[in-house]
Write a protein that binds this DNA or RNA. Structure first.
Length: 122
DNA sequence: ACAGTGACAACAT
DNA sequence: TATGTTGCCACTG
């Protein structure tokens, strides 16, 4: 498939999430062929705050939330409110309980062929 | 090599 | 609906 690190694969995929849509950590993991690596996906996005290089640029990390449609982020760089603000800026409705209606905003992802294409480039 | 960590997820209460 | 528990994973010191 690809010789890119898991982190890079996650970033590449997250960059494909359309503006105004969201997906879950688990779905990202599943799309990368690792159905049980949801936790690692969160870990990868968390690492963005330390990445000063270009690989971390333009990664819409805020479009990734948990499988229940809830924002669960919390680290020294960003808060749940920060993420909610970014999502609302894209027209996504985020309740005070930090929840998003997945039936309306969920990005179901790509097919394996397209994914292979994306990860294969550059 | 190995234990600890964390932006998860599924399931049981 | 709201916790708690357990399994998983990539990465780090």
């Amino acid at each position: 498939m690809s010789d890119k690190s898991f982190y890079e694969q996650v970033y590449d995929l997250v960059r494909q999430i359309p503006r105004g849509r969201v997906t879950s950590y688990g779905r990202v993991a599943q799309m990368l062929g690792r159905p049980n690596a949801a936790r690692a996906v969160g870990y990868a996005l968390s690492a963005l705050k330390d990445e000063q290089t270009t690989v971390a640029k333009d990664v819409p990390w805020h479009r990734v939330i948990n499988s229940q449609g809830r924002i669960t982020i919390s680290n020294r760089e960003h808060s749940a409110e920060d993420q909610a603000l970014l999502l609302r800026a894209e027209g996504i409705m985020v309740g005070d309980d930090m929840r998003v209606d997945l039936d309306h905003y969920l990005w179901r992802g790509l097919h394996w062929l397209e994914i292979d294409d994306i990860l294969g480039e550059n």
